[in-house]
């Protein structure tokens, strides 16, 4: 019985690290990428990149052919910058996630300098 209880306690601690770092990270990034995909259904960065040389609103006049890529490039740049920023935030959140138990352990185990 004692062996069972000790095993259960040790298993809890081990599982905690496996779940926090392994399963948790997997879950986090799959949700982040799903979120980016749904964002792009609204902002259309990928589709604008694909159609970068197409004029806006079907305006195939010479002016339209020049303005189109310019506006698209701007939209792509803005979108990409937004995505990059969001990715940085996501990355930071993930790093914070990873750091929490480590920091706690370090604080616990390393005595504070006097």
């Amino acid at each position: 019985m004692i062996r069972l209880i000790v095993s259960a306690i040790l298993q809890s601690v081990l599982n905690f690290f496996v779940r926090w770092y392994g399963t948790g990270s997997q879950f986090f990034w799959s949700r982040v990428f799903e979120w980016f995909a749904s964002l792009d259904r609204t902002f259309g960065v990928a589709i604008n990149a694909r159609l970068i040389m197409h004029p806006l609103y079907g305006d195939y006049s010479p002016v339209g052919r020049v303005i189109g890529p310019v506006f698209r490039l701007g939209r792509i740049a803005l979108g990409a910058a937004t995505y990059a920023l969001l990715f940085v935030f996501a990355g930071a959140a993930w790093l914070a996630w990873l750091a929490i138990p480590a920091l706690l352990l370090i604080t616990m185990l390393v005595p504070a300098r006097l």
Partner: peptide, 15 residues
């Protein structure tokens, strides 16, 4: 140290 230990324990117990 104690607070960190407490927090760590809470995380493990919650999980």
């Amino acid at each position: 140290q104690l607070r960190a230990a407490g927090l760590f324990l809470i995380l493990v117990l919650a999980d």
